[in-house]
Simulated scan of single mutants.
Amino acid sequence: MKFGVPLGLLHPAAWKDVAVAADELGFESVWVPEHLVFATDLSLATYPGTSKPGIKPTTPLFDAPAYLCWLAGLTTRVRLGTAVHLLALRHPFVSARAFATLDVVSSGRAVCGVGAGWYRGEWDAAELDFDGRGARLDEAIEVVRRLWSEPVVAHSGRFYSFPEVAFEPKPVQHRLPILAGGESPAALRRAARLCDGWISMPHTLESVAPQLARLAALRGSRRLRVTVHAYALASPEEVPLWEALGVDRLIVRPWARGRDAVAGLTSFAADYGLTTR
């Protein structure tokens, strides 16, 4: 089992120290969330399934691939992922360039977690159709895949059209992994059809099982990497149960207060047998 660390659950002032500690303690990955912009109109910000705004407009926002490039220079082996990057809010050229740069400067440690997003406010602000975001994301995934792998690319699609272009440098990884985030039927289909894996919302063993069953039915014989946020992981004895469900990576939060994050990671690494540097 691989273990990742969610930086987005901490104040940004702690991200550097936690990422460096994760690298030194043997955690496999660190993950940065993102939004592009927050509207001040909170009527657009109700998170699905709740009655309260899911955002605070004054929350600091960072360009996730750019921030991860900085962390790449401070670390040596931990993988650097987004959970998740709103790929369809940009032209594919922009995101393809950002993640190729991250992969090159990190010597092949980039993981591109993508999602369609839930927050209408930033789509409206960017003057893009919120209701068409899923189809736009699917096409954007196709475009960045080609830019990362083909010598020259021309494209004519529903959302993007451009003449033949060259795109260098390519990512270091032969296939820079793209993981689809989200738990809607469309998100699961995207993971199974277009991506290298799926990244979940927070779950327990019991709550994630139905989603994994749906994903298994959709993917058929395709091998997918499954990443689950498991903030309530109880003990090392629980890990084989996750593995039996087909989970490859758990994103864990072994701290109750942000100030205790590094100490929590240290204890977790010892308890779960991670290899320190």
Score class of each variant (00 low, 15 high):
192 A>D: 03
150 E>I: 07
161 S>D: 09
178 I>R: 03
142 E>R: 01
149 S>L: 13
169 P>M: 07
173 Q>V: 04
156 S>I: 01
194 L>F: 13
191 A>T: 08
139 E>P: 11
174 H>V: 14
149 S>I: 09
199 I>V: 10
183 E>T: 10
182 G>H: 04
172 V>L: 10
164 E>V: 00
180 A>D: 04
200 S>W: 01
189 R>V: 05
182 G>T: 04
162 F>N: 10
150 E>V: 05
137 L>T: 09
193 R>V: 12
192 A>C: 05
160 Y>E: 03
169 P>L: 12
167 F>L: 11
190 R>Y: 11
158 R>I: 11
202 P>T: 06
192 A>S: 10
150 E>N: 11
178 I>A: 07
165 V>G: 13
161 S>Y: 05
144 V>F: 02
141 I>Y: 09
146 R>Q: 14
163 P>W: 01
154 A>T: 04
147 L>P: 10
154 A>N: 06
140 A>Y: 03
192 A>R: 03
187 A>S: 12
201 M>F: 11
162 F>R: 07
177 P>F: 09
187 A>Q: 01
151 P>H: 09
157 G>E: 08
136 R>Y: 09
203 H>T: 07
191 A>V: 08
186 A>F: 05
188 L>I: 11
171 P>F: 10
173 Q>I: 06
195 C>L: 01
168 E>N: 13
193 R>N: 07
191 A>G: 14
174 H>F: 12
145 R>A: 04
176 L>G: 02
198 W>P: 09
138 D>A: 03
171 P>E: 05
154 A>E: 14
135 A>R: 15
183 E>M: 10
142 E>T: 14
162 F>E: 12
202 P>Y: 01
158 R>K: 15
181 G>D: 06
204 T>A: 01
152 V>L: 06
181 G>M: 08
163 P>S: 06
137 L>N: 07
154 A>F: 01
149 S>D: 14
187 A>I: 02
136 R>P: 03
159 F>Y: 12
148 W>D: 12
200 S>G: 08
189 R>F: 09
188 L>A: 14
147 L>K: 08
196 D>R: 00
162 F>Q: 10
177 P>M: 05
141 I>D: 06
165 V>I: 15
178 I>G: 09
186 A>N: 04
150 E>F: 07
194 L>N: 10
191 A>D: 07
185 P>Q: 07
149 S>E: 15
159 F>M: 01
135 A>N: 14
